[in-house]
């Protein structure tokens, strides 16, 4: 049943990357429990615009949990209190009337704040560009059963490919490590025959880029896996480790 909430919001406000930011406190009232978290911020922003204030800048695009843009660190967790959802899929019924909600941007030196809650995640793009592709010609789409791929491998590759590049894994990790993301991108190709051609150079290039971007090293806390909206497994990190070390010894 629809209810209405009065909430106190503590939101990180920062003009740009070069100035220091700080928290601002806002009151919002009459928030429908059926609203998404982003819609709740929309309500706040409408009011701020009417009052002549600067609206809270935040990233969003699809608002249906598939683009990975809506990065918000809510009450100490990426994408808020529920597992397996992005912020746009988080509904206000997950909060209590009268609650104070703290909203922060992703915090990582590799994800600099652009404005307020918007961070620059182009480091992820550069990791992909370093090796997350196949350059063999795969030809036209084949008959479905033409390529000899075991069902388990196809399923695992597909599960890894579900990563939407949202960055929640980095945000959740105490080391701001991007290993869950990078390992998902390594795995989706490593599991398929088309990906074998560049298997060794891919793992090495992507890991080198990941380190260069300034992400931390994994300490296997498993926080990334728990907070990933797409349920990417840390088994992928182990696979990336295998790919990387076998490439260390076998590459020329």
């Amino acid at each position: 049943m629809e209810g209405h909430l009065n909430l106190t919001l503590k939101i990180w406000r920062q003009k740009n990357a070069s100035v220091a930011g700080k928290f601002e406190t806002y009151q919002v009232s009459g928030i429908s429990t059926d609203m998404s978290f982003l819609e709740m911020i929309d309500v706040l922003n409408n009011r701020l615009i009417e009052e002549g204030d600067d609206p809270v800048a935040f990233d969003h695009d699809c608002r249906e949990g598939i683009c990975g843009m809506c990065s918000m660190y809510i009450n100490g967790r990426p994408h808020g209190p529920n597992r397996g959802v992005t912020t746009c899929q988080l509904h206000m019924r997950s909060f209590q009337d009268g609650e104070t909600i703290t909203v922060e941007p992703w915090r990582a030196s590799a994800f600099p704040v652009i404005k307020d809650l918007v961070v620059n995640r182009s480091a992820f793009d550069r990791i992909i560009a370093a090796g997350g592709f196949v350059s063999v010609n795969t030809g036209n789409a084949q008959d479905a059963n033409n390529l000899p791929i075991p069902k388990e491998n196809a399923d695992e590759a597909f599960a890894a490919a579900a990563c939407i590049g949202c960055g929640a894994c980095v945000a959740a990790c105490k080391n701001a490590s991007a290993m869950l993301f990078t390992s998902a991108k390594v795995s989706q190709l490593a599991l398929l025959p088309q990906g074998q051609v560049e298997a060794a150079s891919r793992a090495q290039a992507m890991v080198a880029q990941m380190d260069e971007e300034g992400f931390g090293a994994c300490s296997n806390t498993g926080a990334c896996e728990a907070e990933c909206p797409k349920g990417i497994s840390i088994e992928n990190i182990a696979r990336m480790n295998r790919e990387y070390f076998s490439a260390t010894f076998s590459s020329k």
């Binding site: 503590k10 009450n75 806390t221």
Partner: peptide, 23 residues
């Protein structure tokens, strides 16, 4: 690893996603 997050979060709910001793 510490240097990879120069600005700390104001609020962290670590217990929600990992064991204290792993952190």
């Amino acid at each position: 690893n510490k240097s990879k997050r120069p600005v700390a979060y104001a609020k962290v709910d670590g217990a929600a996603n990992s064991k204290w001793y792993s952190r």
